[in-house]
């Protein structure tokens, strides 16, 4: 066998196998069992304890690049909240955020849920950290018209909301800054809101200290967090299917590392 050649295998073979390993389970899920961690259970319990008729705030702080990791979390929590009859209000401190709010709403509008009653999209507020601070302290004062150009005061869901403490929970879905850190610093610290986080996988270690300190009550970590949330809430959905693709993708990469090393050692032995 030509071990040299195997060591320098055409990388396109790796790419094709990776596409197959991820695309096939997306079309036909394999249902590999998924264990759920304590952090997700805690997240679920907090959200599940919110009584119907209450409202929660989603801070959609991500852009298309980070969305594959975070948006599925928002989808999963949104579904849970709609099923429970809890209202959801969206705000964003990233320019692309409101677009994701509209995406979250669309499916439910088709099912007959009503904009302004079950959900509202307050759009994008520029200004980063200081904008988060001002919004946290005075919701209506910072946003007078929503993303669809309705006066915020005319929305039934916004009645009785003065500052972010009036939401049963604030969940920051975050792909970087401004995001979780700014919410903790500027709003959770001073006002003591009930803050939860949905984070991109790479940011998770960075946010762990906030979870340990109780400033962030619970956190979902990346796409896996979304898949676990779907599992815990009893609605396995798109994220769970993607976890099968993740498993196969990881296995392919590990398999290639092993093959590469076998070829490397056999070649060395031959010499």
């Amino acid at each position: 066998m030509d071990w040299k050649k195997l060591q320098n295998i055409d990388r396109r073979i790796i790419y094709i196998l990776l596409i197959l390993a991820t695309a096939v389970p997306m079309i036909r899920p394999l249902a590999i069992p998924l264990s759920t961690g304590p952090s997700v259970h805690k997240f679920y319990q907090i959200m599940d304890a919110i009584p119907a008729g209450e409202k929660v705030l989603f801070s959609l702080d991500y852009a298309p690049s980070g969305a594959p990791d975070v948006h599925p979390q928002a989808l999963a929590v949104m579904k849970h909240m709609m099923n429970k009859g809890v209202g959801v209000v969206f705000i964003s401190f990233w320019e692309a955020g409101p677009m994701f709010g509209e995406q979250l709403i669309r499916a439910y509008e088709e099912q007959g849920y009503e904009y302004g009653v079950h959900f509202a999209n307050l759009g994008y507020v520029p200004g980063g950290e200081s904008a988060i601070k001002r919004f946290g302290e005075d919701v209506a004062g910072q946003v007078s018209r929503d993303f669809r150009n309705n006066p915020v005061s005319s929305l039934p869901i916004m009645q009785g909301i003065k500052d972010t403490r009036d939401f049963a929970a604030v969940i920051c879905f975050s792909a970087g800054n401004p995001g979780v850190q700014e919410w903790v610093r500027q709003v959770q610290g001073p006002l003591g809101i009930n803050l939860l986080a949905g984070a991109v996988t790479v940011s998770v270690p960075q946010y762990m200290p906030y979870v340990d300190a109780g400033q962030v009550k619970a956190m979902l970590a990346g796409l896996r967090g979304a898949a676990e949330y779907e599992t815990v809430s009893g609605n396995p959905g798109p994220s769970v299917a993607k976890m099968d693709a993740q498993s196969l993708g990881h296995l392919i990469i590990i398999a290639f590392i092993i093959v590469g090393n076998i070829a490397f050692f056999m070649d060395k032995k031959k010499q």
Partner: peptide, 16 residues
């Protein structure tokens, strides 16, 4: 190793 999952998620987003 820790970011492999995040990167595959991006691919899944594009495949979607």
């Amino acid at each position: 190793g820790n970011v492999v999952m995040g990167r595959i998620s991006l691919l899944l987003g594009a495949l979607e």
